[in-house]
Design a protein around this nucleic acid. Structure first.
Lengths: 112, 112
DNA sequence: TTTACTGTTGGACAAACATCAAACCTAAGC
DNA sequence: GCTTAGGTTTGATGTTTGTCCAACAGTAAA
């Protein structure tokens, strides 16, 4: 159960966070993570992107401080840093999750 | 009191919104707009960027649906689209405004 | 009309980004 | 040891971005 390098909570900036959330693929990933922790392949199924591209997105999310990744054997588990983010920017993650859900289920003209 | 082209509320996407908020300069602009409507030069004073660069940022914010710009004589008044955004993504703008405020006043290591 | 003011537009340029493909790495399983 | 499975890294490619500068456009004032 190793750990990957993550930014400490103090080093998370709002701009980087917003940037991590500015890509439709990453928003979809975050939306899935809201349901619960997931392994990389689990998240990837259904998103039509090359696995290296997905890996890139995982890294962006992680380095922005949005997710935490733990290595377990040859799979990685990704989860949202809910607690850190709530302490840092109260209400922000929840609002984003609500927004991304409403956007994906709301109108038929889904972004993408 | 002309109007500039703005996206209708239905055409505002979360990803574009997040992208508009992913730049430190734009976050600062938004933070100022939270205090109340402002003219372009008023916002610009204190932000060390070329006026054309600022103009570019105003456009990004406007086209993302974050702000509404009205032309009044030779000045333009910019304001946040609070109502539209609240209806579309409840709580999101407020959370962002709280976050940007806490980030700029919070730690000495201000982003930028 | 001429000048000044307020901003926008177009061009240029370097940096960053999203994407894919191929090579790579590490842990399991045989 | 060899192979497979799960991901990452590197390189390449085309696109977008942030920034400045110079030129422009519309409005107001002199």
């Amino acid at each position: 159960m190793r750990e990957l390098p993550h930014p400490s909570a103090d080093n998370i900036t709002l701009a980087q966070l917003m940037h991590a959330l500015s890509d439709p693929a990453r928003l979809e990933i975050v939306e899935r993570l809201a349901e619960g922790d997931e392994t990389c392949t689990a998240i990837g199924t259904g998103i039509e992107l090359h696995k290296s591209t997905l890996s890139h997105h995982y890294r962006v999310l992680r380095e922005a401080g949005l997710t935490r990744t733990t290595v377990d054997g040859r799979t990685r588990l990704i989860r949202l840093r809910r607690h850190d983010l709530e302490r840092l920017f109260p209400g922000l993650l929840d609002a984003v999750l609500r927004a991304v859900r409403s956007q994906s289920t709301g109108r038929p003209s889904a972004a993408r």
